[in-house]
């Protein structure tokens, strides 16, 4: 089998107002079939995609924030969230929904998928990738 490549999906848009966030999620789900080393990055307004307590019923839209919780099963387990982007929007990591994955190597222990990083760490993360897809 060919060597795994490092894929980073960069999310910079708030959900619902445009199609970017939902499209990114669809591409991540489709891309998961290729079993690469996948990371997601949330910066700028992209951090709003992970807000806890999203309720789209009155807006008559699909609440795709719940789909992020399924991604652990698809081996998508690294959600890098930029601290500066949160702070600029008056948010902290506690405002985000908990997202976990089950670690097969440790008897299916639940582990957090969200990894808060600084802007400098985000820049370094980008520099490590083979492929970067932006939304």
């Amino acid at each position: 089998m060919a060597q795994k490549k490092k894929f980073l999906y960069v999310n910079r848009k708030a959900p619902y107002g445009t199609i970017y966030a939902l499209e990114a999620l669809e591409v991540v789900l489709i891309g998961a079939a290729f079993e690469q080393d996948v990371s997601l990055a949330f910066l700028d307004d992209g951090v709003f995609q992970l807000m806890a307590g999203q309720d789209t019923a009155a807006a008559s839209m699909k609440n795709f924030s719940r789909t992020f919780k399924a991604l652990g099963d698809y081996d998508v387990r690294k959600f890098y969230v930029e601290r500066e982007s949160l702070a600029e929007r008056g948010l902290t990591v506690e405002d985000l929904m908990p997202i976990t994955y089950e670690d097969e190597a440790e008897d299916y222990a639940e582990k957090p998928s969200i990894i808060p990083v600084s802007r400098a760490e985000m820049a370094a993360l980008i520099a490590q990738q083979d492929v970067v897809l932006s939304f």
């Binding site: 998961a32 795709f64 399924a70």
Partner: peptide
């Protein structure tokens, strides 16, 4: 209902 997607086949088998 929980995740707002239908699972891929390998996820269905696993679950």
């Amino acid at each position: 209902e929980e995740y707002q997607i239908a699972p891929a086949i390998r996820i269905l088998v696993k679950e």
